[in-house]
Design a protein around this nucleic acid. Structure first.
Lengths: 138, 138
DNA sequence: TTATAATTGAAAATGATTTTCACTAACGTG
DNA sequence: CACGTTAGTGAAAATCATTTTCAATTATAA
C-alpha cells in the first residue's frame, strides 16, 4: 500500500493534505484498472461524499505531475489513469475486464536504434501498450 | 496519389461519392501530419466552402472503418487521424513539426511472446508509437 | 491561536462530439 | 435521359468532458 507514500510525496512538494485528496489517492492507488476522472469521482465519494469532480481533475493533474499515475489511451475511450509502474514500465490491458498488468520493455532499445538509423529521426520517447485477455477472461 | 483508390473503396462499400467526401479525402490522404477533425475541416473548406464539420466527422468514421486512416494518440492532444500505412505499420512522430514516418515493427512478436508467457495474458493487439525529432527539426 | 495562502465545490463557460431534422443530390432503374 | 428512392448534407440543438471563476473554507506555519 503506497497510499501513505503518495500522500507524503504530495506534501513534500508543497501541496496540502486534505480529505478530498486522501479520498482520490485511495481510489486510484488501489485500482488494478485504469479509471476515468468520473469513475474516480464516483468511487471516492463513498468515503468523502462532499467531493467535487473538479477536485478530482485537479488532484489527478498533480499526481501525474509527480509521476505517481500515468495516462492510458485506449482505441475507444481516450483518457483514463492508472498508478504508474515502478521505473519505466509498459501496460498490458485486458480487453474484457480492464485489468492492467505492467511489464518492462527493455527490448525496445534495439528496435528504436534500427528505426532511428532507417528514418533519420532522433528518437526521444516511445509509447507501447498491449491489449489482450487476462488469465481469468480467456 | 491514392485519392482515386480511396474514393473507389468508399464506393465499393456502398457509400456515395459526394463533393464533401472528395474534399475530406483529398486533405487527409495527402497529409504527412496527423490532423484533427477541425484541421481537416478548415483545410477542406478551401476546395468546398459549404462543408460542415459534422460531415468531416462522419467521413473520418467511414475512412477509419475501411482502414484507410488510423487514429493517433499523443501525450497531450488526443484524437487525430493520419493515413494508414500499408499493412501493419507503426508511427514515428516528430515532436516539433508533427511529420509522421511509418515503420514496421515485426520485431515485436518476440516481445509479446515473452510477455504473454510471463503474465498469462493472451495478447491480441499492440499499440506502439515513437516520438522524436525528424531530420529537419534536429 | 491566528493569519494567510492554498484548496474546495458550485455554477458558469468552454470545447469537442453527437443527434435531430428538413432539405438536397447521387445513382440505379425504367 | 428523367425519375424516384434513399443516402448524404449542413445548421442548430443536445450532450458530454473539461476548465475557469469565485466566494467560502481549511491546512499549516508562525
Amino acid at each position: 500500500m503506497d497510499i501513505k507514500n503518495w500522500l507524503s510525496q504530495l506534501q513534500n512538494h508543497g501541496y496540502r493534505l486534505t480529505d478530498a485528496r486522501r479520498a482520490v489517492v485511495e481510489i486510484i492507488a488501489r485500482s488494478a484498472r485504469a479509471l476515468t476522472p468520473v469513475e474516480v469521482y464516483d468511487a471516492a465519494r463513498s468515503s468523502h461524499p462532499a467531493l467535487g469532480l473538479v477536485t478530482v481533475y485537479r488532484t489527478l493533474e498533480k499526481l501525474e505531475e509527480l509521476h505517481l499515475i500515468q495516462r492510458v489511451h485506449q482505441p475507444s475511450s481516450c483518457q483514463a489513469f492508472i498508478s504508474a509502474g515502478h521505473g519505466h514500465e509498459h501496460l498490458l490491458l485486458c480487453m474484457r475486464c480492464g485489468q492492467v498488468a505492467f511489464f518492462s520493455g527493455d527490448d525496445l532499445d534495439e528496435l528504436t536504434r534500427v528505426i532511428a538509423a532507417r528514418t533519420g529521426y532522433l528518437i526521444k520517447e516511445h509509447w507501447l501498450q498491449l491489449f489482450g485477455l487476462c488469465a481469468n477472461c480467456q
